[in-house]
């Protein structure tokens, strides 16, 4: 198996030049997630304006996969409706948990398709999902508070 199938240029670019990094105000909910087996962590904030994801900001430390996937996340969800964002999240999760058998839709996942290779490395799936778990948690807190 070619390791380049995992460490794609896109991933390394996001890792070296992350998008949307840094914690910003104002925000509606914050989530801290840690992967206990490796210590990777991310703190992520979301601001929601009239059912749209206004801003996603984050801080974290960890491997290239966890940090780059959080960077891609900000591109994919910012400005989208909450529903769209959650649909995109589901597609991303399905892809990386798909053991290499799920054909990703580039129209939906854009740069996120670069993480398709991660699916073949079970030990790294959690890394790719760390930021997304924080996003999911933060959004559910916003929705919980709105209810």
């Amino acid at each position: 198996m070619n390791i380049e199938s995992m460490y794609q240029e896109i991933i390394l670019d996001h890792y070296k030049n992350p998008h949307g990094r840094g914690l910003r105000d104002p925000y509606d909910a914050e989530s801290f997630q840690v992967n206990p087996t490796c210590g990777d962590e991310v703190t992520l904030r979301v601001a929601v304006e009239q059912d749209r994801i206004g801003d996603v900001s984050y801080e974290g430390q960890g491997c290239s996969i966890s940090q780059a996937s959080t960077s891609v996340l900000t591109d994919l969800v910012t400005g989208r409706s909450v529903d769209e964002a959650l649909t995109t999240m589901d597609a991303f999760v399905e892809m990386v948990q798909g053991r290499g058998k799920v054909e990703p839709d580039e129209d939906v996942l854009e740069d996120g398709v670069a993480f398709a290779g991660v699916a073949k490395y079970p030990a790294r799936v959690k890394c790719a999902l760390l930021g997304w778990m924080a996003f999911k948690d933060a959004v559910s807190r916003v929705e919980g508070a709105a209810r």
Partner: peptide, 21 residues
């Protein structure tokens, strides 16, 4: 460079090491 990345890229070259705590 995070140890996970080091370990994964070493593995790709056949070198098995442990990473983590």
């Amino acid at each position: 460079i995070h140890p996970h990345d080091v370990g994964q890229l070493l593995d790709a070259q056949g070198v098995a090491v442990r990473v983590g705590h």
